[in-house]
Amino acid sequence: MFEARLAEGGILKKVLDAIKELLNEASFDCSEAGLQLQAMDNSHVSLVSLNLRAEGFENYRCDRNMSMGMNLASLVKIMKCSANDDVLTIKAQDNADVVTFVFESKNGDRVSDFDMKLMNLDQEHLGIPETDYACVIKMPSNEFAKIVRDLSQFGESIAIACSKQGVKFSSTGDIGTGNIKLAQNSSADSDDKVVVDLQEPVTLTFASRYLNSFAKAAGLSEKVTLSMSPDVPLVVEFKVATSDNDYGYIRYYLAPKIED
């Protein structure tokens, strides 16, 4: 038996918005630790790794590990039937072929439930090695989203260059070139702070389209962390958190473009 009660059901809506462009279907792995999802997009260029900790749920029960394969477009349809402040309960029997979503309005006078058929998905898990990254950039997530959106107008690729001076995002295309430079600013307590932890300078180039999809997670967290090392995938991490609860994280991995 699996049952998880999420006080703020809207969190799952936001999580879905942050992965639905990249994945058509995915398995949610349930264990005592929480709900995990790890899946690559069809072209194996990006990977989504979602971790929702058991402690983030109001109630969480998972008697045995199970994997629930879901069509994300179907899940979006079901989540559309809920209000953002509904309490959400997800439940499934062991070996069930359906998962049930129950939405309760805050004042308790409206309860709806929806069963969704589960899918058998071939799971191909990737082993992601622990990496010490050459640069780690922490910045406001809405700023990241705007930069990626602005530069995507120029070209299919965005170069991210991280050095002692700060971070430079660049893109070149038919209409010309755009560069956006962010200096490290250490203004204490500022939410707009950009912090760079640098071991060595790194420049890597990535597909704009994927960065734009990742930026859809900006609604989940005020901060985003970009981790880069030469010739390895970029990691873009958003905490899934509200002011009073730490739900976990969503991480995106993106293979860099390779110079011929």
Partner: peptide, 14 residues
Amino acid sequence: KSTQGRLDSFFTVT
């Protein structure tokens, strides 16, 4: 000119 890398070449399939 650049080509898009793939994750399979960086990570191991388990």
